[in-house]
Simulated assay, not measured.
Amino acid sequence: MPEQQPQEYIEARVDIPREYADAVCNFVIENIANGIVLEEEDDSPTVGIQFYVDEARAGYREQLNLYVASILVDSGLTPPTISERRVKNLEWIEEYRASVKPIRIADDVVVRPPWHDPLPNTRYDIIVEPRMAFGTGSHETTRSCLKIIRERFQPGMRFLDLGTGSGILSILAARMGAVYVKAIDYDLAAVQNAKENCAINNVSTPCDILFGSVEKCEWDEPYDFVAANIIKSTILPMLNTLVKLTRSSGTLMLSGLLTQDEEEVSAALRQLGEADFTILADNKWLTYAVKKR
C-alpha cells in the first residue's frame, strides 16, 4: 500500500541573524524538513526561514533550538523563538522529491535518490531515500565525511557511525569492505531511515543500527574508524569517549562543525594528546580527520 501522507503539517518559522542564515538553512534542510522558504529584505538584519514538518516530528523544536544556540553561543545574541501554525497538506514533499538530483561526491562515489538511474563511471552507487533524516549528500559536512571515508577507509575495518542520520556514511563504509558497522542516532525517524537505506542498498555487512547515543558503545572494543557528524555542543562533552573508542592509528572523524569552532575543537583534541589531525573545510563547515596516537 502507498505510504499515507499526513493530513496536516506544522508550518514553522524562525528569524535568524543574516550571517547565520546559511548554516541554519542547511541544518533545517538536511536534519528536519525537506524544503524551506526564505523571506528576507535587503535592509533587515534577519532572514525568515519557514519550513514544514509532520506533526509526528514535534521533537524538532528541541533539535533546532540546540543547534541555533550552539552557533550563537559566542555572539552574545539570544536564540530566536520558533513560531508555528498548522496547515493542510500542501504536497510539498512530492515537489521536493522531483527536485532531488544525483550528487557526485568523489570521482567514483555518487549519492542518488531511488527514482534516478545510476550515473556512469560510478564504483560506489549509494541510494538514499530522502526523508527527514540528515544525510542526502547535499550538505557540506556529509560531502566532506564521504570524501574522507573514501580516502582513508580500508577493507577489513570496523566502523562506528554516531549521528548516522540516513545511514549514508555507514553504507559507504560497508560498500568499501567494513567487517562490522554500528550506526547510532538519537532520532527514531533517522534510525528507521538508516535501516531502510541499508536495505535499499543491499548492505550485507554485519550492521547494528540503534537508537541512542555513545552509551551504546560503552563496552565495545575500539573501532578502526569512528565518525561523529553531529554538532560541537554534542561532540565536545563526549570527545574523550570518542578518542577511547578509536584504536591506535585509527581514524576519528568529527564533523558538523563551523569555522568558528576550530580553535575550541583543536584545543580540546590537543589537550587529549591528539595533535595529528587535518581539517577539511567546505564553505563555513569543518570536518576533522584525526589519526589516533
Results as ranks from 00 to 15, higher is better:
R97L: 15
P114A: 12
L119K: 10
A98G: 10
V109F: 13
L172A: 11
W115N: 05
S170L: 02
W115F: 11
K147R: 13
C145Y: 01
Y96L: 00
S170V: 01
I82C: 03
S99V: 02
P80F: 07
I103D: 08
S144L: 10
L90H: 12
P120Y: 15
M132V: 11
I126L: 15
E84I: 03
E94W: 14
E129P: 01
H116P: 01
K147H: 00
Q154V: 00
D108S: 13
V87M: 02
K147P: 01
G135T: 04
S83I: 15
R158I: 01
E94A: 08
R143S: 09
I93K: 13
R85A: 06
G167N: 11
H139G: 15
D117A: 15
R123S: 10
S138W: 04
P118T: 13
W115Q: 05
R123I: 02
S99C: 02
F153Q: 09
R86D: 02
K147F: 00
V111S: 08
L162G: 02
P80V: 15
P130K: 07
G137L: 02
G135L: 04
R97D: 14
G137D: 03
I103G: 07
K88Q: 04
K101W: 11
D108V: 02
L90E: 14
L146I: 01
I171E: 14
F153W: 03
P102R: 07
S170W: 01
I93W: 15
P120A: 11
Y124C: 06
T122M: 05
S166A: 15
Y124A: 07
T164Y: 00
I105F: 02
Y96M: 11
L146E: 05
V110Q: 06
V128C: 13
T164M: 03
L169V: 00
S166D: 10
V87D: 04
I148E: 11
M132P: 02
L90M: 10
T136P: 08
P118K: 09
F134D: 09
F134N: 14
T136F: 06
S83R: 13
I168L: 03
T81G: 01
D108N: 12
G163E: 07
P102I: 11
S83T: 15
D108R: 13
P155Y: 09
F134V: 14
E91R: 13
R158V: 03
Q154T: 00
G167Q: 05
A106V: 02
R97Q: 12
G137H: 04
I127Y: 02
P113M: 06
L160M: 14
V109D: 07
M157Y: 15
N89A: 04
E129M: 08
R158A: 11
V87I: 15
V110N: 05
P80S: 04
D125R: 05
V111N: 10
T136M: 09
R112K: 13
I126C: 07
H139Y: 05
R97G: 03
G135V: 03
R112D: 12
D161M: 09
H116D: 10
D108L: 06
R150I: 00
F153C: 06
S138G: 11
L146D: 05
T136H: 08
R85S: 10
P113H: 09
C145K: 05
T142D: 05
E84W: 13
R123Y: 00
E94R: 11
T141R: 09
E94P: 01
